[in-house]
């Protein structure tokens, strides 16, 4: 029972960390970033490169975040900004970007599977069971991230401007908010979060050019039913991630793999606003 509870908690944490970059981009820019999976992969390979170069594995996360932020700004300028009036085309373009990134990684690192050493090996005792210490770290990071992202949106000037752009872009522009810049920064932050998440989860998995892809659809679903709020994304991760763990444990893991997609699709059909409003 304790293992199940910890599994649910840490799975929710992982899902939240992986989806948060997608959420902020969707919230501010009304854009589903299909390159999200590729950004996760880039984060994974950043972690791989950092540890292969002999640096501490802990460094890989900030390195991936910085790399993602800069890359995100470039991508926003070249691909996303020209498509702001064509949201469905923006989806396709970011998907195409994902293909390009995947192929570049394949050309650079090969198709093979790589492994990244975990910065925190072994287990720790909690609730009477031995549990993977690193998974617990990820869950703690997720909780900190909820607080940090909510604070960014609620307390800072950037957050206020971003919320203004979300609510009424015309009025925001009339008040002198440079909505173009807000969007660029948002995309940068979203990409940074995605890359950092990729680096964070790689010690639990392995690295290959398509590692981000399986996360993509679950992230979409979680973000779509969460609206534009980080706390509700955390709740959604907890509920749907929990369902996934339960189904995987008691039924079979393959069914577990589709739990999130199926539940989210049904929830959205019944209430298109998802969990965001009641």
């Amino acid at each position: 029972m304790a293992v199940l509870a910890l599994d649910i908690l840490t799975t929710a944490g992982i899902l939240f960390v992986v989806s948060s970059g997608l959420l902020i981009i969707l919230g501010v820019m009304k854009l589903i970033n299909f390159a999200h999976g590729a950004f996760l992969t880039v984060g994974g390979y950043t972690a791989y490169s950092v540890s292969a170069a002999g640096y501490s594995p802990w460094l890989s996360i900030p390195a991936a975040a910085i790399f993602g932020f800069v890359g995100g700004l470039v991508v926003e300028r070249l691909i996303v900004r020209p498509l702001y009036d064509r949201p469905l085309d923006a989806i396709l373009a970011t998907w195409g970007l994902g293909i390009v990134i995947g192929q570049l990684i394949t050309l650079g690192f090969g198709r093979g599977v790589q492994f990244v050493p975990t910065p925190l090996a072994g287990t720790t005792e909690l609730l009477g069971v031995d549990y993977s210490a690193y998974r617990l770290v990820v869950a703690i990071v997720a909780v900190l991230l909820v607080i940090a992202m909510s604070a960014l949106l609620k307390l800072t000037r950037f957050g206020l401007n971003a919320r203004a752009v979300i609510m009424d872009e015309t009025l925001a522009r009339g008040l002198g908010i440079d909505s173009t810049r807000v969007r660029a920064w948002t995309f940068g932050i979203g990409a940074a979060l995605a890359c950092a998440a990729g680096a964070l989860i790689t010690p639990l998995l392995s690295v290959d050019p398509n590692m981000g892809l399986p996360w993509l659809v679950n992230s979409f679903m979680l973000v779509l039913i969460s609206g534009v709020s980080f706390p509700s994304l955390f709740v959604a991760s907890l509920i749907l991630g929990g369902a996934q763990v339960v189904v995987s444990t008691y039924a079979n893991p393959i069914l577990g793999g589709m739990t999130i997609v199926v539940i989210a699709a049904l929830v959205l059909r019944i209430n298109p606003k998802g969990f965001s409003r009641g």
Binding site: R163, D168, T170, L171, L175
Partner: peptide, 27 residues
Amino acid sequence: GPNRMVRAGVAHAPQEHTLFPDLTVED
């Protein structure tokens, strides 16, 4: 564009889209 105008010292009190109804008065 509007943001340059605002920075130059022009304010607009429009007829529609006047306020952010879901933000506080302070915000």
